[in-house]
Amino acid sequence: RLRSFTCSCWVTLGQSHFFEVSQPHSPHRMFVVGEEGKRRLLAALRLLWIVIKPLVDETTEEERIVGGHDAEVGRWPWQVSLQVHHTNGRYLHVCAGSLIDYDSVLTAAHCIQNRTTPQLWRAVFGLRRLYGDKIHSVNSQVMKIMPHCRYDARSHVNDIALFKLSQFITYNDYIQPICLPSTPLLLSDRNPCYISGWGLTKENGTPSYILQEAEIKVFPHEVCNSYDWYNGQLSRNQLCAGSESGHVDTCLGDSGGPLMCYLPDDDKFYLVGITSFGIGCGRPKLPGIYIHAANYRSWIDSRLLGKTSIVSIPCVLIFSTVVWVTIHLVL
């Protein structure tokens, strides 16, 4: 990713589409562009603009929310931007997460990949706009990364991880934890559900630097696994949510972020799902897939309390590199 104008950009357009014209007594050369040359030059300038434009406002590595709109300041106070330190000294947004305790952020295991060193990461809280919203934001380094040891990169099962922070986060109007359900919630039309993130606004589209939100529907498991949807690929630990038409969805970069539902009787939002993966973004009958948070409550509690079990065979997490054509991880 470009961060300054210290590098050079070379574009090959082809000499046959340019005509050199000499000017008397001038050290400079002028070129007259033919019709084909104009077309190639415009294409090159568009490409150059795509490369240079992020210099104005830092870019993200991986992004996502389709069919959303700008969230108000403080609307989702548990929303976290998980960022990785690069060799140029800057941090880039990689994934989202949810604050669940003073020093704990829940996210997706696939976000980690080979970046297992905690010192590479930081968590940013209270953000609405990436890379510039410092009024209410708080940064924290990461002390420990705890992915699920049985995470499978191919099937995406157990796609959950806990980040322990190096400091306690002070709660305020813009930074609050989200509630965790102790058992799976029975959702109805009385329970509006939402997604949020800084991801792509459409498949192969552009990211939003303003936090996006969208209301979505959580579908019954049998609908998600029907033959013309995911055709039995999903386990009971996975949810699908979005819209049947595909007009609302998560996309690249929203990984690890919250799927949250409101319970009016409790007057609280609960973390129902963790953004995991999808086939494309915003496709009909292929909504985003989320880890069913309630099914991992005991796993989460054991990490929060530091009571991870000790077994005779080491629990090794293997992150394999998988090349996807249509199926992509929601990074």
Score class of each variant (00 low, 15 high):
Pro147Trp: 02
Thr183Pro: 03
Lys202Pro: 01
Asn139Leu: 08
Arg190Thr: 10
Gly197Gln: 06
Pro184Cys: 04
Thr183Cys: 00
Leu211Lys: 09
Tyr151Phe: 15
Leu200Ile: 02
Ile160Tyr: 01
Leu211Cys: 05
His136Ala: 00
Leu165Gly: 03
Pro192Ser: 09
Thr206Asp: 07
Arg190Pro: 05
Ile160His: 03
Val138Trp: 00
Lys164Asp: 07
Tyr209Asn: 14
Lys202Thr: 14
Lys202Ala: 10
Met143Thr: 01
Tyr131Arg: 01
Lys144Val: 00
Val138Lys: 06
Ile175Glu: 02
Gln176Ala: 03
Pro177Met: 08
Cys193Met: 13
Tyr171Glu: 06
Tyr131Lys: 09
Ser166Asp: 13
Asp189Met: 06
Gly197Trp: 02
Ile195Asn: 01
Trp198Phe: 09
Ile175Ala: 05
Pro184Asp: 07
Ser137Phe: 00
Ser137Tyr: 03
Ile178Leu: 03
Arg150Lys: 13
Phe163Gly: 04
Lys144Ile: 06
Val142Leu: 07
Leu187Asp: 13
Ser166Phe: 00
Asp189Ser: 13
Val157Met: 09
Leu130Glu: 10
Ser166Val: 02
Thr170His: 14
Asn191Gln: 12
Gly205Phe: 06
Leu162Val: 15
Gly197Ser: 02
Lys144Thr: 08
Ala153Thr: 14
Ile195Phe: 07
Tyr171Met: 10
Asn204Leu: 08
Arg190Ser: 15
Gln212Leu: 13
Pro177Trp: 13
Lys164Ala: 09
Cys193Leu: 12
Leu130Tyr: 08
Thr201Ser: 03
Leu211Tyr: 07
Thr170Ser: 14
Gln141Trp: 04
Met143Glu: 15
Phe163Tyr: 13
Gly199Leu: 05
Val157Gly: 02
